[in-house]
C-alpha cells in the first residue's frame, strides 16, 4: 500500500512550529492588554485559530492526510459553527 507510506516530519519543522506557537501565545497575551473595544474577542479568537491550525496541520499532520479526513474535519467544524451560530437566532433576538 503506497498511501500508507506516511510523510515523516523533521525535528526542524516541528521545532519551527513550536516556536511559532510560543510566539503567538506571547502575542495573544500582549494583545489582551491593549484595549480595542469590540475587536478584542475576534482578535483573540483569530490568534487561537491560527495556533490551532498549526497544531492540526503539522503536529497532527492533517496537511498530509487524504481527502476523507480533510473533508470530514471541515464538516465537523461546520457543524460546530452551526451549533453555536444558530443558537444565536434565539439568544441575540430575545
Amino acid at each position: 500500500m503506497k498511501e500508507n507510506e506516511q510523510h515523516i516530519l523533521s525535528y526542524k519543522t516541528l521545532a519551527l512550529v513550536l516556536a511559532a506557537l510560543l510566539v503567538l501565545t506571547g502575542l495573544t497575551i500582549g494583545v489582551s492588554y491593549v484595549h480595542m473595544g469590540i475587536l478584542n474577542v475576534p482578535i483573540a479568537l483569530a490568534i487561537a485559530s491560527t495556533k490551532v491550525s498549526f497544531v492540526l496541520l503539522y503536529f497532527m499532520h492533517l496537511k498530509f492526510e487524504g481527502r476523507a479526513i480533510k473533508i470530514s474535519f471541515l464538516c465537523t467544524i461546520c457543524f460546530l459553527a452551526i451549533m453555536i451560530s444558530f443558537t444565536f437566532w434565539d439568544v441575540a433576538y430575545r
Binding site: T25, T28, S32, A44, L45, I47, A48, K51, V52, V55, L56, F59
Partner: peptide, 9 residues
C-alpha cells in the same frame, strides 16, 4: 492541547 488553546484566551 487544541481545546486548551481556545480555553486559555
Amino acid at each position: 492541547d487544541l481545546i486548551w488553546i481556545f480555553v486559555f484566551p
